[in-house]
């Protein structure tokens, strides 16, 4: 029989595996909500992974690392924003390039830094690694089942959930969020309602990039136990792009979605080996493709996809 302990272990592993996805997804939601499909998530996460790791290496402080990762993601998103909003370049092409550039840049600098170290491993200090450990709150974490289920994750997970909740509140409960959504749906209507389309596009895309950056830091700092490894984001950014669709462009749903996708990623270790591993890896993309297809069959009313996604807005074209 499957024991409770086994299930708990599985859930905890799923949440941990879903955490980087959560950042990537929420960041991308902000961008897509203003109508900009940013295929550069993988790249922004990679740059965040690099800046976060580097700051951690220098400062031995987790908060500093996260801020640096946030800043790195923001700067990379700014490249995308300037080119697609300011210069009205094709979003797909710029996004893909940002991915290639970002991953390449992180790897390039990473290799350079590894070469600078004496041991040929670029590694975070033990002090910082201890800061990144799963939290342990006396009493609370010791409650049976609940303690393990709720109070046993690392600081990134809680940060991610808080960011997702804030973004959900921002998008659906504030005026700015309402305006933001209108931009992604129908920028001409937003413009006519005297919303500053360009300004809000920049704000959302750049903030979204920053959030992706933190997700990247999780990949570089936690997944490999504090040792820098090339290609540390390893496709999680792309899964995040898929997850946005699965989460129906809602940050709150993204919390659940990222843990489900995280579960799919760790399921292979908990499942009998009769089912091929490739199947579990493929599942997120199959589910997402199915969601996309079903939504389109149901028509515009059923799909949550921002109507103007992928198109740039030039006022004189209206």
């Amino acid at each position: 029989m499957i024991s409770l302990d086994f299930i708990l272990k599985f859930i905890v592993a799923a949440v941990a595996a879903g955490t980087p996805l959560l950042f990537g997804t929420v960041g991308e939601i902000l961008s897509e909500k203003v109508g900009h499909l940013n295929l550069g998530v993988e790249g922004m996460m990679s740059i965040g992974a690099l800046t976060g790791f580097m700051a951690g290496y220098g400062s031995h402080n987790l908060a500093v690392s996260m801020i640096a990762a946030f800043a790195g993601g923001m700067v990379s998103a700014l490249i995308y924003a300037v080119l697609t909003i300011g210069f009205m370049a094709n979003q797909n092409v710029i996004g893909l390039t940002l991915t290639i550039f970002g991953v390449g840049f992180a790897n390039f600098v990473g290799v350079y830094m590894v070469g600078k170290t004496s041991s040929n491993t670029w590694q975070l200090s033990a002090d910082l690694i201890s800061q990144m450990k799963s939290i342990h709150i006396p009493l609370l974490s010791d409650i049976p089942v609940i303690g393990k289920l709720i109070f046993s994750y690392d600081p990134f997970t809680y940060t991610g959930i808080i960011i997702a909740l804030i973004c959900g509140w921002y998008l659906f409960k504030t005026k700015a969020g309402l305006n933001t959504q209108a931009i992604g749906e129908n920028p001409a209507a937003a413009d006519a309602a005297s919303i500053q389309v360009t300004k809000w596009k920049f704000i959302n895309i750049v903030l979204g990039g920053g959030i992706c950056g933190i997700g990247g830091a999780y990949c570089s700092m936690i997944i490999n136990g504090g040792v820098w490894i090339s290609d540390c984001v390893g496709g999680l950014g792309w899964i995040s792009v898929a997850l946005v669709i699965f989460a129906a462009w809602r940050p709150q749903t993204a919390i659940l979605g990222s843990f489900i996708f995280g579960a799919l990623r760790v399921l292979k270790y908990y499942m009998p080996s009769v089912i091929p591993i490739a199947f579990f890896n493929m599942l997120p993309f199959i589910i997402t493709a199915a969601v996309l297809l079903i939504a389109s069959i149901r028509g515009t009313k059923g799909s949550h996809i921002p109507e103007n996604l992928g198109f740039n807005y030039f006022r004189e074209d209206r």
């Binding site: 080119l83 550039f101 991953v103 390449g104 840049f105 390039f108 290799v111 090339s230």
Partner: peptide, 27 residues
């Protein structure tokens, strides 16, 4: 001893600049 990723970085930078310039061809 530099990474092969150098190619990706340069490809990216070149494309970014060309896309920016492209804008001035049209607007």
């Amino acid at each position: 001893g530099l990474s092969t990723a150098c190619a990706d970085v340069l490809q990216g930078i070149i494309l970014f600049f060309i896309m920016a310039i492209e804008f001035f061809v049209r607007y």
